[in-house]
Design a protein around this nucleic acid. Structure first.
Length: 583
DNA sequence: GCCGTTTTCGGCCCGACTGTTTTCAGTCG
């Protein structure tokens, strides 16, 4: 039982209490208790054993006692009783827009309904509209909410969200009433998946902005339209929210809606401890009694100034996850994060020799257009027969072709001959040293036997990492975002092995992978592990995915120095040569 | 249920929007 599990139990208690109609502040106490545990530094069990739990802000007598019971016994009778008393159908109802604890309680008490099926029927025969506080529109909204739950409830890939958001942002910026416009939320933070789009606009005249936003192309439905706030549902299921604020509030609104929640909570606490109240509306001086003073609100020109006012260096949006960035920004300069323009080439790309769609020459030409100095080709090896993996002979022909192109210079860019070599179930590689030794580099990846135990998978991958001819480790977990969980592997042990063997770990930049996860990179880079941002391109367009990888690297606090493919060609050649030379 | 330089009670973030009301409760972020 770790802090995450205890926090999850507290979060669930909060939801259950909410449905029971408990005191909202009691609900919030469990929520903030859960949050306090999630963002806790150090080992929960050690803190409990030394009697330190009560010193954690947000944990009072009752929550400390419950945490201790959970740690000791692995169960919490209070939680179990609560869970038994709340039908699971009610928890599902919370996911329907417009239904909160009060309305769900009314549905349960007055109609004796505890399932979504029952609720659908009651809507269809008009019983819901007859309830006090409900009406025809609420009833219709519930029916649609249940119907759309699957399609709209899910998250979306960051890449897709950005593609959707960019034309909207451009459109907003093009309006004469708009002074400034930005997107915010998890899209701006660069989170791997995005729930909805948030747009913040500075304008003294919100009317025309709202009008444009609620009538632009690609809207399925306008779900809210007010004077300063509107929401629309876009084709593809994404929801987009627009907030128009007076120009002097823009920076505060932008910061607030960029979040994350944890980051904002810590920023507000910091403001309070300095005698100010921070919100999406602004920063105001607090009198001793907690009342606002007559002093005018603080003015800031941009986010850098807002951070500076609170005694912090500017924190890039990607780092605002409430994972220690504020503490760091107080003490010292934050790392100079890697930028898209730092990238000088990419490894791990496929051609039509295996499962790609473009030829070697086409890939090289496209890479040259990005302004890169080099391109690495890493097609699949023979064990990946589903991906038309290369035999030794076909690989040899590709290597010869790459050498010819490099010697003639006709590609206009240096090509590295590599391979995405399968790591077989026992951890050995798909080709012998005789074949692998002829290549410039080797990316080793798992493509089979995903269901091995964590222990076996970890041993398997570490064995590959320890192989002297392996240059990089491909997609560490094999996850496919929003589709498939990764295989079970002890990432910390693999990171240690990579550090010990001077093996690069890739940031697979395919928008559906973004693997190894950004949450692991800060630790990995501290141990000296180098990253390579690899688009895993299967056609020329796929090369552009490197940008998603840069965002992942930034979220992982990585600088250009910590990313291998920011190095110029000569240094890359040098590094690869030295790596191959026998020790 | 938490918290305290207004300290053991009485606050706890609050504004926008919708739908149902006719001045406001509930939801959302």
């Amino acid at each position: 039982m770790d802090k995450k599990t205890v926090a999850a139990v507290f979060s669930e208690i909060a939801v259950l209490l909410e449905l029971e109609g408990a005191n909202p502040f009691k609900v919030r106490a469990y929520q903030s208790g859960a949050r306090a545990l999630e963002s806790l530094d150090g080992d929960l069990r050690e803190l409990a054993e030394s009697g330190q739990l009560g010193n954690i802000p947000g944990l009072g007598k009752a929550l400390v006692e419950k945490a201790e019971i959970l740690l000791e016994t692995g169960r919490l009778p209070y939680h179990e009783e609560l869970k038994a008393s709340v039908p699971p159908g009610l928890i599902e109802m919370l996911e329907i827009p417009g239904l909160g604890p009060k309305k769900i309680k009314a549905i349960r008490d007055k109609l004796d309904i505890t399932t979504l099926e029952g609720l659908t029927k009651a809507c269809e025969d008009g019983r819901v509209a007859a309830l006090p506080g409900f009406g025809q529109k609420s009833q219709q909204k519930i029916i649609e909410g249940i119907r759309n739950r699957e399609a709209y409830g899910r998250r979306h890939l960051w890449w897709k969200a950005r593609e959707t958001a960019e034309p909207i942002l451009e459109g907003l910026r093009g309006l004469s009433a708009v002074e400034r416009a930005e997107h915010a939320g998890s899209l701006r933070r660069g989170l791997e998946t995005v729930g909805d789009l948030d747009f913040i606009v500075a304008s003294p005249e919100p009317g025309p902005v709202m009008e444009w936003f609620t009538s632009m192309d690609g809207i399925l439905e306008v779900t809210a339209r007010g004077e300063t706030k509107s929401s629309v549902r876009l084709e593809g299921g994404l929801q987009a929210d627009l907030r128009v604020v007076p120009p002097e509030q823009f920076v505060f609104a932008l910061h607030h809606f960029t979040g994350s929640k944890d980051h904002n909570v810590k920023m507000r606490q910091r403001a309070l401890s300095r005698g100010y109240s921070l919100s999406e509306w602004g920063l105001t001086r607090k009198e001793g009694g907690g009342k606002e003073s007559a002093e005018p609100p603080v003015r800031v020109a941009d986010e850098a100034e807002l951070f500076r006012f609170l005694g912090l260096r500017e924190i890039p949006p990607e780092l605002r996850e409430g994972m220690g960035e504020i503490e760091e920004a107080e003490e010292r300069d934050l790392p100079d994060l890697v930028k898209p323009t730092d990238i000088r080439g990419v490894f791990h790309n496929h051609t039509n020799a295996s499962d790609g769609h473009a030829t070697l020459a086409e890939m090289a030409r496209a890479a040259k257009e990005f302004g890169w100095e080099y391109l690495g080709i890493a097609d699949h090896s023979k064990a990946s027969f589903q991906a038309n993996g290369l035999s030794a002979e076909r690989l040899e022909r590709q290597v010869a072709e790459i050498r010819r192109l490099n010697e003639s210079g006709e590609a206009g860019i240096h090509l590295f001959s590599g391979l995405e070599c399968d790591i077989l179930p026992d951890g050995s590689l798909d080709f012998g040293d005789d074949v692998l030794g002829n290549l410039d580099y080797v990316v080793a990846s798992v493509h089979s036997s995903f269901s091995q135990s964590e222990e076996d998978m970890t041993r398997r991958i570490i064995r590959a990492v320890e192989h002297p001819l392996v240059t990089m480790l491909g997609h560490l977990t094999g996850r496919l975002l929003l589709m498939r969980e990764g295989y079970r592997v002890d990432a910390a042990k693999v990171i240690d092995a990579a550090a010990a063997n001077n093996v690069i770990i890739e940031i697979n930049a395919h928008p559906r992978r973004l693997d190894m996860d950004w949450r692991l990179w800060r630790r990995a880079s501290q141990k000296g592990v180098l990253a390579s941002i690899n688009p895993d391109a299967h056609d020329t367009g796929g090369l552009a995915y490197y940008e998603a990888g840069v965002v992942t690297a930034r979220k992982g606090w990585l600088t250009a120095e910590q990313v291998f493919n920011t190095r110029p060609l000569a240094k890359v050649k040098d590094w690869l040569d030295k790596r191959k030379a026998p020790a």
